[in-house]
């Protein structure tokens, strides 16, 4: 009766689409598929029905390593106090051209 397990066995894939040439691939969502090939065709049918992409990447969700659970946490602190990495840190007189 119940086939709870059969679709559970299709792993989850994350989908990344390049909208057009010159742009990066961007994460658009996820889907289930039996293998890479099916994941790609499903991704095409699901995420590019209206020419939203010229290239697709799929990757098994479990293969993605991510920084810790909160998006803002001490992991990013090393960059927080280095204002000198930004161009606006430096005072340049207004009459110096092209800088």
């Amino acid at each position: 009766m119940s086939d709870r397990t059969s679709s559970n066995e299709w792993p989850l894939y994350e989908v990344f689409v390049r909208g057009k040439r010159g742009l990066n691939h961007v994460h658009v969502g996820s889907l289930h598929a039996a293998d890479h090939r099916m994941a790609l065709t499903h991704a095409r049918d699901l995420y590019t029905r209206r020419n939203e992409g010229v290239s697709i990447w799929v990757v098994r969700s479990e293969h993605i390593a991510a920084s810790s659970r909160d998006e803002k946490d001490p992991f990013f602190e090393p960059s927080a106090d280095k204002v000198y990495r930004h161009p606006t840190f430096y005072d340049i007189p207004d009459d110096v051209p092209h800088i």
Binding site: S2, R4, S7, N8, L12, G29, S30, L31, H32, D45, L46, R49
Partner: peptide, 29 residues
């Protein structure tokens, strides 16, 4: 095309539900 879109919308949303720890097969059940 319209009915196909409805399927697509359902799948975008199941995908969003899974980011909260829900299981797609379980939701269908």
């Amino acid at each position: 095309a319209k009915v196909q879109d409805e399927a697509g919308h359902g799948l975008y949303l199941y995908s969003a539900a899974e980011t909260l720890g829900a299981d797609r097969a379980d939701l269908t059940e």
